[in-house]
Simulated scan of single mutants.
Amino acid sequence: MNITESEDQAQRLIFDWARWQQGKYPQLKAMYHAANEGKRSARAGAELKRQGMKPGVSDICLPCASGKYNNLYVELKVGNGKASDNQLKFVDMINSIGGKAVVVYGSEAAIELITAYLEGTIDDLEIVSDTYPKEKAKITERVNKKRFIGFCGIDCRKCDNKGCQGRTVDDILSPGLMPAT
């Protein structure tokens, strides 16, 4: 889309498209937005967390299997927006348990990604550092480098050591967390 769109506008365009395409892709009837953001009081936020709300949950979920993946999660961004650490951790977690999660920039890219997922061709897209389109991967390059380095100092994507369980150096340096002995 050539016009600058807000995240709200992009989200509406994606779900309008999904409604129009349900005849071709009936799985889109199950797609939903996780309303996990918004301003609320500390008390209301604490209550929602007790009820299961999790920080970082992706914006869009398509809870159906396609190809080798169990489900699709889309963290929608526009412009030069950056995914938060919690959002990137959620993306990593989904990708580690058999789902496909991607940070996607704009409604057109999200529609391309969802279509490719439904048609079983998502692995043919140029997704770089869990980001689509690939040109936007540089926005989170610094964060991406940090998030893939485990406690042992090795890139977790290239390591068989399950002993560190994907803990990062930042996790260990956080107050109250001590390395396992």
Rank of each mutant, 00 (worst) to 15 (best):
V104R: 01
E126S: 14
A35C: 02
Y105K: 04
I97Y: 08
G163E: 00
N70C: 01
K134Y: 14
L88G: 02
L113T: 08
N70W: 01
L13H: 14
Y69T: 04
R157S: 15
Y32T: 10
D92H: 13
A116R: 11
I172V: 13
K100L: 10
L118E: 05
K136A: 14
G163A: 13
H33K: 15
K134C: 09
D85G: 06
F151V: 02
C159N: 07
K162M: 00
F15Y: 12
N71D: 13
C156E: 00
C164H: 15
K146N: 12
D155I: 08
S66K: 08
G67P: 08
A30T: 08
F151C: 05
I122L: 01
L48A: 15
D85V: 09
S6C: 05
S66M: 04
A10H: 07
N36C: 11
K138R: 11
S58I: 00
D155L: 09
I14E: 03
R142L: 11
C159V: 04
K162W: 00
N2I: 04
E126A: 11
V169T: 11
G38V: 13
G153W: 09
K24V: 14
V102D: 07
D170I: 12
I154R: 15
V91D: 07
M178Y: 01
C156K: 01
R12A: 12
A110Y: 06
R43Q: 15
I14Y: 06
G99H: 00
L62P: 07
L177W: 12
A109P: 03
K100T: 01
G153L: 03
E119S: 04
G176N: 15
A18K: 10
F148S: 05
I60A: 05
I139D: 13
Q22L: 01
T121K: 15
V104M: 02
I97P: 00
I114W: 03
D16G: 00
R157C: 08
G176D: 10
R43L: 15
L113H: 05
F90V: 00
V128C: 12
F148Q: 09
F90S: 06
